[in-house]
């Protein structure tokens, strides 16, 4: 996997006359994590849809998206090499675990045996040895989540978008899966954009934290709560309980 950064240049999204995402410029270096926090319905996932190339419906969006030196804004979703991990694992239920992984596995791995060996190897590394023929429905929540990430990584994305992927898991599994995701992303040197409303996710992610909030005039603004650029500010209450320990 190549080490390319993600750059957002004046990315903004509007629904009717309501600004969901005000013009946002941000650079995420390879291996770095930026967390965007905000309340439900604030447009965090919509931003990820725009970055992933799957934004449809009544939204109006603008801005430019760069992956390394390549501008991906005009590209179709499948050509951007931007992977998204959703809150639900979204394993394809009609395919086995192995087939799910094979669906994701990049075409660069050729030959049936080579592909099978690669899948078996990543399953083994993830503690899921022998799971290839299993039906996704027979897996636990944590196992399904891990398979979803493995499938995504096998596609060799250059950017990882995390759409609150830890929410559905219970507390123990959540911590374990966070570790699993961030360690794999770091190993692959992927720039990661995490959206969440859980302060613990942001804590675990480290790196820059941005917070979406509505200011006194009713306008949507993005605060840099923690990060290399700009001052550390305390987020508004809508951004969640980050004030308790996010600003260090």
């Amino acid at each position: 996997m190549s080490a390319a950064g993600l750059r957002l240049e004046q990315v903004s999204i509007v629904l009717d006359e309501r600004v969901l995402i005000p013009p946002l410029t941000e650079q995420i270096a390879p291996g770095a994590v930026v967390t965007l926090m905000g309340p439900s319905g604030s447009g965090k996932s919509t931003l990820l849809s725009f970055l992933g190339g799957t934004l449809t419906g009544p939204f109006r969006a603008a801005g430019r998206i760069w992956v390394g030196a390549r501008e991906v804004t005009p590209l179709a979703a499948e050509r951007r090499r931007i992977g998204t991990l959703f809150q639900d694992d979204l394993l394809f239920p009609h395919l086995t675990v192995g087939e799910n992984l094979a669906f994701g596995l990049a075409r660069t791995v050729r030959g049936r045996s080579a592909r099978g060996a690669r899948i078996a190897a990543v399953l083994a590394q993830a503690g899921l040895e022998g799971f290839a023929p299993r039906d996704p429905g027979t897996l636990s929540g944590g196992q399904r989540a891990r398979v979803a990430l493995l499938r995504l990584l096998l596609a060799e994305p250059q950017v990882l978008l995390l759409d609150e992927p830890f929410n559905r898991l219970d507390a123990d599994l959540r911590a374990e899966f966070r570790q699993f995701v961030f360690s794999h992303a770091a190993a692959a040197a992927l720039p990661v954009l995490l959206v969440t409303h859980d302060v613990a996710d942001a804590e675990a992610a480290g790196g820059t934290v941005l917070a979406l909030r509505t200011d006194a005039s009713g306008a949507t603004v993005i605060d840099r709560v923690r990060g290399a650029q700009g001052p550390c500010v305390r987020p508004a209450p809508q951004a969640g309980p980050m004030t308790e320990g996010g600003c260090r």
Binding site: A77, E78, R81, I82, F86, F92, H94, F103, G104, L152
Partner: peptide
């Protein structure tokens, strides 16, 4: 059908045609 199945498949590099044939059609058989 949950549109995120298609989005996930697209993000995995599958073409819209492949998503249609391999994901949507089998799921909605």
């Amino acid at each position: 059908l949950d549109p995120r199945y298609a989005r996930t498949a697209l993000a995995l590099g599958a073409s819209p045609g492949r998503v249609f044939l391999r994901i949507k059609l089998p799921l909605l058989l």
